[in-house]
Lab assay of single mutants.
Amino acid sequence: NKFNKELGWATWEIFNLPNLNGVQVKAFIDSLRDDPSQSANLLAEAKKLNDAQA
């Protein structure tokens, strides 16, 4: 379904953000699993944090 596809894509993108540490990645992935409907918002937050830590 739509959420599974978005969840998978967001998970892959978060895993590939180079400036996040393992704890941050795990926290974002756990949040995605808790509420897949928020995948776009969580991915945006992860990208912002990644950019801030560059």
Score class of each variant (00 low, 15 high):
1 N>I: 09
1 N>L: 09
2 K>H: 13
2 K>L: 11
2 K>P: 12
2 K>C: 15
2 K>W: 15
3 F>A: 12
3 F>M: 09
3 F>T: 10
4 N>F: 12
4 N>C: 15
4 N>I: 10
5 K>G: 13
5 K>S: 14
5 K>M: 09
5 K>C: 15
7 L>N: 05
7 L>A: 08
8 G>M: 15
9 W>K: 10
9 W>R: 11
9 W>S: 10
10 A>Q: 06
10 A>H: 06
10 A>C: 12
11 T>C: 15
12 W>M: 07
14 I>A: 02
14 I>E: 02
14 I>P: 01
14 I>Y: 03
14 I>V: 05
15 F>L: 12
15 F>A: 09
15 F>D: 02
16 N>D: 03
17 L>G: 00
18 P>K: 09
19 N>F: 15
19 N>S: 04
20 L>T: 00
20 L>P: 00
20 L>N: 00
21 N>E: 05
21 N>D: 12
21 N>H: 07
21 N>Q: 06
21 N>V: 04
22 G>N: 15
22 G>W: 15
22 G>P: 14
22 G>M: 14
23 V>G: 10
23 V>M: 12
23 V>I: 13
24 Q>K: 00
24 Q>N: 01
24 Q>A: 02
24 Q>E: 02
25 V>F: 03
26 K>A: 09
26 K>P: 00
27 A>D: 05
27 A>C: 12
29 I>F: 05
29 I>P: 00
29 I>T: 03
29 I>K: 02
30 D>R: 14
30 D>I: 15
30 D>L: 10
31 S>E: 08
31 S>A: 14
31 S>D: 03
31 S>T: 05
32 L>T: 01
32 L>A: 03
32 L>Q: 01
33 R>M: 14
34 D>Q: 14
35 D>H: 09
37 S>Q: 07
38 Q>S: 10
38 Q>P: 01
39 S>F: 12
39 S>L: 10
40 A>W: 12
41 N>P: 09
41 N>H: 12
41 N>W: 14
41 N>S: 13
42 L>E: 00
42 L>N: 01
42 L>A: 03
42 L>I: 15
43 L>K: 01
44 A>F: 10
44 A>W: 11
44 A>L: 10
44 A>M: 10
45 E>K: 11
45 E>N: 04
45 E>A: 14
45 E>Q: 12
46 A>M: 06
46 A>L: 03
46 A>Q: 01
46 A>T: 01
47 K>S: 03
47 K>I: 12
48 K>D: 04
48 K>F: 09
49 L>K: 03
49 L>A: 04
49 L>T: 03
50 N>L: 01
50 N>M: 01
51 D>C: 09
51 D>R: 13
51 D>S: 09
52 A>D: 07
52 A>P: 01
53 Q>C: 11
53 Q>L: 10
53 Q>P: 02
54 A>P: 04
54 A>C: 10
